[in-house]
Design a protein around this nucleic acid. Structure first.
Length: 775
DNA sequence: CCGATACGCATTTTT
DNA sequence: TGCGTATCGG
C-alpha cells in the first residue's frame, strides 16, 4: 500500500507563505489556524493533509470535517491531485453529518437504531411536530411548529435530552414566558417517535454520535485509535455538540487542527457558537496559534476598509489582515432616493464597468441581507436584458416530486418511517383518504406502533374500515412488500426505475404534458439517472452490491445548492450575503445598507447580534477582489408600504478615509430633481401599458357570472348518481369537453379520471362534478 | 379531488 | 405586498 510515497518530490511547501507553512508543518499538538478572508485556508488544509500522509499517517487515520458537501468534495479533489485518488478516497473526509451518519450506521445497534435508519430533513421533522401537536390537541397558533422545531434543535445542539430539558428550570421558565408549557412533553414525544420510527433528524446525527461515544467508552476508544489526526474546517461555525464530539475524539491524543475565521462567524442563528473558536485555546491549553493574515483576494483598499469595520467588534481574535495587491479604488457608497433607484444606479455601474473595463457579467455579484430584496434587481436586470442567476431557491431534493419518489425509497428501506408513509399512502391517489389515514394514525399512536404495523395487521389492531378500503390498503401493502423483497437483491438503479414505474408515479406525471409535469418528469429522470451514476461509481469502486439503502443513506444528506446550471453562460450573481461566504467576485455590490434592514431589525439591542451583523457585513465586503460598492435607499417599499430608511450605522464603522461617501450636494440635487413620489412613478409606469383597471373590472364580472350559473345548475340537474363508463365523452361546465379514462370507487367516493381537451387530465369526485354525458 | 378564497406572516438556512 | 397554508364549497 503506497498511498503516501507517490508524491512527486514536492516543492509544495514552497508555494506557501511563512505562516501557511508553519501551520502545515506543526503537527505535534493542537493547533488553531485563524484564516483571514482570502488567505488561502483551503490550501493550508489540503497541504497539511498531504504533509501528514507524507509523514506516515495512513489516509484512513485522518479525519477531516467540513460543513458542506461542496467543501468536502473540493478538498478531496485537490488532495487527490496531490497524493493520488486512491489515498484521497480512503481519507475520512466529509461533512460532520455524513461522517457521523456513517459511524452511526455501523454502530446503530448500540444505541437502539438499525443501520437502515432514515434521516428526516427539516420539513419531515416539522411535519412530525405538527402531528404531535394535533395528537396533544395543542393550538398551532400558540405552539408554532417552527418555534417548537427551533427549540428542540437548540436543545439538541446543546446536548440537552428530553429528561434534562424537563428538569431544566431556565428552559421551563422560558417556555412559560413563551406560553408553551407543554414544550417539554412535545420534545419527549418527538424524541420517542423518532426512535420508534428508526429515524434521526440532522441534529440527532450529532447528539447520537455524542451519546454513542459517551455511553460506550470501548467504542469511543476504537475511534480515538482510528482517528490519529483530526482536522476541522470552518471551526467558527461549529455548535456545542460538534465541539463536544471533537473533544471526545481528541482529548487523549490532542492531535487536532481547527481552521476558521472568527470574523466570519455568521451562523449563530443555526446554533454556531463563536466561543468555540474564541476559547479553543482554553479547552486545549497547549494550542499553538497560527494566523494567516495575507489576503490574496482583494485590493488593499478593500482589505483596509474591511479591517477598519471589523475593528469595531469587541469579541474577536486580533489579527492584521493585509494585501500586497494593488491599492485599487476606494469603496464607493451610493445613496439612492428609492429602492428602485438603487437598482438603476447599480445597473448603470455595471454598464459602465463593462464598457470601460471590459468585465464579463460573471464578474459581478449583488449581495443583499434578505431574499426579498432580490426582486427589484431581478426586474432591473430583466429590463436591461442582462443575464443573471439567483441563488437560494428550492434545492433539487426539496422538490415535491423528488421527495415523493424518495419517500417510496425510504418506506421500502425503513417501513417504520412515518413521514414517508404519510406522504405516499395516497400518492398517487389510490382511494385511501384522510379519514382512513386518521384512523391508522390514532391507533398507531395509542398502541405505540408504527403506521406500517397497523396497515399490515388491521384486524389485530381493530382498524375499523370497510371492505373496499381494506382491499386498497392490502394492495398498497403488497406493492410495498414486493419492493422490500426486491430491494435486498436488486441493485439501486434498477430498483429505482422499478419503483418509479410500479408505484404509478410516472403514469401520474405522464398523463398530460403541462410544462409543470414535464419539468417534474425531468426531475424524476434526473434522480433516477443520478442513481445510475451512483451505482456505476460504487461498482467501479469495487462494491459488489449497491442497494437502495446505500443510495438513500447518501442522498439524505445531499442538499446540493451548487448545481452549476448553465455555468457556460456568463451571468450576474444575486444572492444573500450568507450564501456568498467562501465565494469571490471581481465586483461586488452590497445593497440595502439601511437601519432595520442591515443590520436587521431583528438584532434589536443585543450587542452579540449586532456584532454578528457586522461580521456579516465584513463577509460581504471581503467577497470583492477589485471593486466594492455599497448602497442604500432613502425610501424602500416594505410589505407593500413605502417606508423611510436611515443609512446603516455600519457605514460609519468604516474609516471615512477609506470610503467615498456620496457627495452631499449630489444627494440634494437628486432629491430635488425627483419630485415624483417613487411609488407613484412605479404605479404609472407599470399600469399605463397594461390597462389594469380594465382588466380588473373584466375579471370581476367573470368571477361573478359563473357563480350564478353554478347555483342554477346544481339546483336543476343533479348528476351525482349518473354512472359513468370509460370511453364516454362528457361536458364539464368549467373544463369543457373530455373523455372518461377511468372510473373508480363507489357511492360518494366515486371518482373519475377525465382527459379534457383543453386542460388535460383531471381527477374529479363525481359527487361534486356536474358532468353532462354527451357521447 | 379541485380551485377559489381568506388569513397571517414576514432575516439569514452549510446538514 | 405577495407568499404559503388552511379552509370551504362544488
Amino acid at each position: 500500500m503506497l498511498y503516501f510515497c507517490r508524491i512527486m518530490e514536492t516543492n509544495y511547501l514552497d508555494e506557501l507563505n511563512n505562516s501557511q507553512r508553519d501551520a502545515v508543518l506543526y503537527c505535534d499538538g493542537p493547533s488553531l489556524v485563524i484564516a483571514g478572508a482570502g488567505s488561502g485556508k483551503t490550501r493550508v488544509l489540503t497541504y497539511k493533509i498531504a504533509y501528514l500522509l507524507e509523514q506516515g499517517y495512513k489516509p484512513y487515520n485522518i479525519l477531516a470535517l467540513t460543513f458542506t458537501n461542496k467543501a468536502a468534495r473540493e478538498m478531496k479533489e485537490r488532495i487527490a491531485r496531490q497524493v493520488g485518488s486512491q489515498a484521497a478516497q480512503m481519507l475520512w473526509m466529509g461533512t460532520f453529518h455524513s461522517v457521523f451518519s456513517r459511524i452511526l450506521r455501523t454502530q446503530a445497534s448500540h444505541i437502539g437504531f438499525t443501520s437502515n435508519f432514515t434521516i428526516y430533513d427539516s420539513s419531515d421533522s416539522k411535519s412530525l411536530i405538527r402531528s404531535i401537536l394535533k395528537e396533544m390537541k395543542l393550538d398551532e397558533k400558540v405552539y408554532k411548529p417552527g418555534m417548537i422545531q427551533g427549540r428542540i434543535s437548540k436543545a439538541k445542539n446543546h446536548l440537552i435530552l428530553p429528561e434534562a430539558y424537563a428538569a431544566n428550570r431556565g428552559l421551563n421558565e422560558e417556555d412559560g414566558v413563551l406560553k408553551i408549557p407543554e414544550m417539554r412533553n412535545i420534545y419527549q414525544r418527538y424524541w420517542e417517535r423518532c426512535k420508534q420510527s428508526d429515524v434521526m433528524d440532522f441534529d440527532d446525527l450529532l447528539v447520537n454520535t455524542f451519546l454513542l461515544f459517551d455511553r460506550h467508552p470501548e467504542i469511543l476508544a476504537l475511534y480515538q485509535q482510528q482517528f490519529q489526526y483530526v482536522l476541522v474546517d470552518e471551526y467558527q461555525d461549529t455548535n456545542y455538540a460538534q465541539h463536544a464530539i471533537i473533544l471526545q475524539l481528541t482529548k487523549t491524543n490532542q492531535r487536532v487542527c481547527v481552521v476558521g475565521d472568527d470574523a466570519q462567524s455568521i451562523y449563530s442563528f443555526r446554533g454556531a457558537d463563536i466561543d468555540n473558536i474564541l476559547s479553543f485555546s482554553k479547552i486545549y491549553p497547549d494550542t499553538k496559534l497560527f494566523k494567516l493574515e495575507q489576503n490574496y483576494r482583494s485590493t488593499q483598499s478593500i482589505v483596509s476598509a474591511a479591517n477598519s469595520l471589523i475593528e469595531k467588534n469587541s469579541r474577536q481574535i486580533k489579527k492584521v489582515v493585509f494585501s500586497e495587491k494593488t491599492e485599487g479604488e476606494m469603496i464607493a457608497v451610493a445613496g439612492a432616493y428609492s429602492d428602485l433607484e438603487e437598482g438603476e444606479i447599480i445597473m448603470n455601474r455595471i454598464a459602465s464597468l463593462r464598457r470601460e473595463r471590459g468585465y464579463e457579467f460573471s464578474d459581478f455579484a449583488i449581495l443583499y441581507r434578505t431574499n426579498a430584496q432580490s426582486r427589484i434587481f431581478e426586474e432591473a436586470l430583466r429590463k436591461r436584458g442582462y443575464p443573471y442567476r439567483i441563488y437560494g431557491g428550492l434545492s433539487f431534493y426539496q422538490r415535491k416530486e423528488v421527495k415523493d419518489v424518495i419517500a417510496y425509497f425510504r418506506l421500502v428501506v425503513n417501513p417504520n418511517d412515518e413521514e414517508a408513509f404519510k406522504r405516499i399512502i395516497n400518492y398517487p391517489a389510490r382511494g385511501i383518504g384522510d379519514t382512513t389515514l386518521g384512523k391508522i394514525i390514532s391507533i398507531a399512536t395509542e398502541e405505540r406502533v408504527s403506521l406500517w404495523k397497523v396497515l399490515c395487521e388491521p384486524l389485530t389492531y381493530g382498524l375499523n374500515i370497510n371492505k373496499g378500503t381494506h382491499a386498497k390498503l392490502q394492495t398498497f401493502r403488497e406493492l410495498m412488500e414486493s419492493f422490500m423483497m426486491d430491494a435486498t437483491r436488486t441493485n439501486a438503479y434498477d430498483m429505482g426505475l422499478d419503483i418509479v414505474k410500479r408505484s404509478g408515479i410516472m403514469n401520474e406525471i405522464c398523463q398530460d404534458s403541462t410544462p409543470e409535469n414535464l419539468s417534474r418528469k425531468e426531475n424524476i429522470e434526473a434522480l433516477v439517472s443520478g442513481m445510475n451514476d451512483f451505482y456505476m461509481q460504487r461498482t467501479e469502486e469495487g462494491n459488489k452490491a449497491v442497494f437502495l439503502t446505500d443510495f438513500l443513506s447518501e442522498v439524505s444528506l445531499l442538499t446540493d445548492q451548487d448545481d452549476d446550471g448553465g455555468a457556460d453562460e456568463s451571468k450576474i450573481t444575486l444572492m444573500t450575503i450568507h450564501a456568498s461566504k467562501g465565494l469571490e467576485f471581481k465586483n461586488v455590490f452590497v445593497v440595502g445598507l439601511e437601519e432595520n434592514l442591515f443590520p436587521s431589525g431583528m438584532s434589536g439591542d443585543s450587542p452579540r447580534a449586532m456584532e454578528e451583523e457586522r461580521r456579516l457585513f465584513y463577509v460581504a465586503i471581503t467577497r470583492a477582489e477589485e471593486h466594492c460598492f455599497l448602497s442604500f435607499a432613502k425610501m424602500r417599499s416594505r410589505y407593500g408600504k413605502m417606508e423611510y430608511a436611515v443609512p446603516s450605522r455600519f457605514l460609519k464603522d468604516i474609516d471615512p478615509e477609506l470610503i467615498r461617501m456620496p457627495g452631499e450636494s449630489a444627494m440634494r440635487k437628486r432629491v430635488s430633481e425627483k419630485t415624483v413620489h417613487p411609488k407613484m412613478e412605479r404605479m404609472t409606469t407599470r399600469m399605463a401599458p397594461t390597462m389594469k383597471p380594465m382588466m380588473n373590472r373584466e375579471s370581476g364580472v367573470k368571477t361573478e357570472k359563473p357563480k350564478n350559473i353554478d347555483k342554477i345548475d346544481s339546483g336543476s340537474c343533479q348528476t351525482s348518481n349518473v354512472m359513468l363508463a370509460v370511453g364516454q365523452t362528457v361536458l364539464h361546465d368549467r373544463f369543457g369537453r373530455g373523455e372518461v379514462l377511468k372510473v373508480e370507487g363507489d357511492g360518494d367516493n366515486a371518482k373519475a379520471s377525465i382527459s379534457f381537451e383543453n386542460v388535460g387530465v383531471k381527477q374529479l369526485l363525481l359527487r361534486f362534478a356536474r358532468l353532462k354525458i354527451i357521447g
